[in-house]
Write a protein that binds this DNA or RNA. Structure first.
Lengths: 258, 258
DNA sequence: GCTTTCAATATCGTATGCACTCGATGCATG
DNA sequence: CATGCATCGAGTGCATACGATATTGAAAGC
């Protein structure tokens, strides 16, 4: 987890030589280097390969991805907007370390956003869209219990899928963001087996959406998310004492030193 | 060149200290030139000093603000995330030119977000907060009909105020964003007198919130926003296609030639 | 005269250098 | 031994340099 100073070329770089000449001209598939780094970092953060609170020096990231600080800096800036990275002026970037309160805030917003999603979709799903959803839920069920990591990924994907089906780009962006943040929060505060995001609930939501029962779909979604949240965020903050708050930090520091 | 070592620029951001001391050690108070430029551009765009679709060359902006392209570029990137600027790869930045459909999408999300706001606040307002709200509504009423621009600004501020009172930073950020985008959309598509954002409705919402009637407050807010949206977005112009946009210009040219 | 090709230009995308800030370290001091 | 202060260094903040790319205008070809 320690990001060490590595000279250029030691790691696989984003700017692959093969793609050098002809970059991303098409606007649709335009994946800039910044975005690539951003996505990679987001992934790493969500998977907790980068632990909350970890420092993210610009040049270390640049080296790691074979780009300059410019790209790293840009990516960090955008992740900061997303809430996955905290930017401290003149001190650098750190992996976000959301408190339980912040976690609850994110879930509150997420519930509101996904309620909109259900209301937009109820009764308006086309056959092919229904097929995609059903297929996704089926895949979730198949893998449930076998692969924890993949299971969580699919669960998040389900919600993103729904958001995309609305065709509302604003909604897609916001839902994507809160899902990312929720992933981080669940990784931090969730118990090992708590993040299943009940597959059966996904199925029920799809059913309600198909039936065109907006109210029920919204209700199900709300309960679903409330359940996910409470599974993780139950622990009421008894951490009023400074020592309790600082304990994990201290532990991590000791871990580094050893 | 001319500009150097102008370490002044300590313009305090819009972020006011309403942010309570919750959260981890070190509240991010990142204030930089980038943010200053970003705020200035946002203001200019919302006020339509920069017209939708206008090109925003990096060095021109840097020049205008006495900074380098680096800052301008960063600011443009963030505004693009906010949806006020459109970034075309290798072509540059342009003031967003949202279609009516996009406008509707934004309003859909806004309604959902503000519903959360009302649900968070209903029955939980403290006396001093109530006073602030009442005062704001009173000011709106006083200026109503006298100063159109200021009236619109206050109307937007009312919604931001509510969001801030929730203490939910995520919510604040999203509401701020959609309010900005709605301002642009209303400026583009709204009729001169359509943006009053009915002051009386604001008052009613506050009343319902104080009364603790969450359902009614949410209902009022929803109707309120739906009214604002419909006042502006009724017109089915659908000027998405560039030919439609250029039609009037072409007509004028033909008129000259004949 | 109209289309096509190519050079020129304007701007973007990225890298890099330098100055400045802030935390850390070590020494002086009460 | 704890506290305050000067120095040092890591790393950010910003400006600038350079190569890449799209657009424009002009010249050549049909």
């Amino acid at each position: 987890m320690n990001i060490s100073r590595v000279k250029k070329g030691a790691s696989r770089s984003v700017n692959d030589p093969t793609a050098k000449g002809k970059g991303p001209p098409g606007e649709s598939g335009a994946i800039s280097r910044t975005e690539a780094v951003q996505d990679a970092l987001r992934q790493a953060i969500i998977e907790q390969r980068l632990q909350p609170g970890a420092k993210l020096p610009e040049d270390a990231i640049g080296d790691a991805f074979g780009t300059s600080r410019t790209i790293a800096r840009e990516a960090l800036g955008r992740l900061a907007v997303e809430g996955l990275v905290e930017l401290k002026p003149n001190r650098g970037a750190f992996v976000a370390n959301p408190s339980l309160d912040e976690g609850r805030d994110v879930f509150v917003v997420r519930r509101g956003l996904e309620r909109i999603v259900t209301e937009c979709l109820a009764g308006k799903l086309k056959p092919d869209e229904i097929a995609v959803l059903r297929d996704h839920v089926a895949r979730e069920q198949k893998i449930s219990g076998h692969n924890e990591v993949e299971s969580i990924r699919l669960a998040g994907e389900f919600h993103l899928l729904l958001a995309r089906l609305t065709g509302n780009q604003v909604l897609v962006r916001y839902v994507t963001e809160v899902v990312s943040r929720c992933s981080l929060i669940l990784a931090m505060y969730g118990r090992p087996h708590s993040s299943d995001c009940g597959v059966s609930e996904h199925g029920e939501i799809v059913d309600a959406l198909i039936a065109g029962n907006a109210a029920r779909a919204a209700e199900l979604m709300d309960h679903h998310l409330a359940a996910v949240a409470s599974r993780a965020l139950l622990q009421e903050k008894a951490e009023r004492d400074i020592r309790d708050v600082l304990a994990p930090y201290a532990a991590r520091i000791r871990g580094l030193e050893s």
